[in-house]
């Protein structure tokens, strides 16, 4: 059955280390609508990356169920319906930027013959141009700056055309100025393609700037404390980001995190 939602139902993850057990995630319940920009926000160790990896099918949950538009993570992955954008760009150094963003066309070709795949590959030249990389298509990753490499990694995700993009702190290694401009680029491209995005960050500013909803997570053990609606207008222009409403939303998200964290400690 096709569904237009991502549903996380009673998810838990426990790591076994020798005789002891570490509970990384406990009783995670959430529903994300198609086309939403969702951010998992919280401090280190709250399980946000673990949750993202479970959604991607890169790790398995100990308990609970996940439905990604009606499919399990493994099924969605087999259909190439998940685009993964990691912390580092993870570009292949021997391929040009254009061939790097076309990676999904070279890999798992059998997925394109399966009926039911909702993936529709995007035009790589258009996506690269939207991300300001039109003049660097033939360049090798080593010839680009860190920010440009990260933009290429985002382009790879969009070009794959998967309905779901999972982004694991993709800007964490960049300097503040680069991060600022790349966030705006991401928003522009996302507005155009409207994929469902689940984005991990530990920056309240970034979470509010990008998202429709922010999932605030608290550690020990990792759990969802609350989900905050970010009802700020789109597109998120500089004016929106410098508005009082935006600042208040950032403060609110931080406050909720402190409140949730304090209760747990």
């Amino acid at each position: 059955m096709q569904s237009s939602r991502i549903v996380l139902h009673k998810l838990s993850k426990t790591y076994k280390r020798g005789d002891s057990e570490v509970r990384a995630l406990v009783d995670v319940n959430a529903t994300f609508e198609e086309g939403e920009f969702i951010t998992l926000f919280g401090p280190s160790g709250c399980g946000k990356t673990t949750l993202l990896r479970i959604i991607a099918g890169l790790e398995s949950q100990s308990e609970g169920d996940i439905s990604l538009f009606g499919n399990s993570p493994a099924q969605a992955s087999r259909l190439k319906n998940i685009a993964w954008v990691p912390q580092s760009s993870a570009l292949l150094p021997w391929l040009s930027i254009r061939n790097n963003v076309l990676l999904s066309e070279f890999v798992n070709k059998r997925a394109d013959r399966i009926v039911g795949s909702t993936r529709k590959a995007e035009d790589p030249d258009e996506v690269l141009a939207d991300l300001g990389l039109a003049d660097f298509k033939a360049a090798l990753p080593a010839q680009l700056s860190g920010g440009m490499r990260q933009r290429a990694a985002i382009a790879r995700g969009f070009v794959q055309g998967a309905p779901l993009m999972l982004m694991d702190e993709p800007f964490s290694a960049l300097d503040e100025l680069t991060r600022d401009s790349i966030r705006l680029r991401l928003l522009d491209v996302w507005e155009k393609h409207r994929k469902t995005v689940v984005f991990v960050t530990h920056s309240a500013f970034e979470a509010v700037m990008l998202s429709d909803r922010v999932v605030v997570m608290t550690p020990r053990p990792g759990r969802i404390h609350s989900i905050v609606d970010i009802n700020l207008p789109r597109p998120r222009t500089r004016e929106v980001l410098e508005s009082r409403e935006f600042e208040e939303k950032v403060r609110e998200v931080k406050h909720i995190l402190r409140e949730g964290w304090g209760q747990d400690e």
Binding site: L103, N108, A111
Partner: peptide, 14 residues
């Protein structure tokens, strides 16, 4: 790199 492997695995590369 583990992160590059993740990109391949998320696409179910064999």
């Amino acid at each position: 790199e583990k992160e590059t492997l993740d990109v391949f695995n998320a696409m179910s590369a064999n």
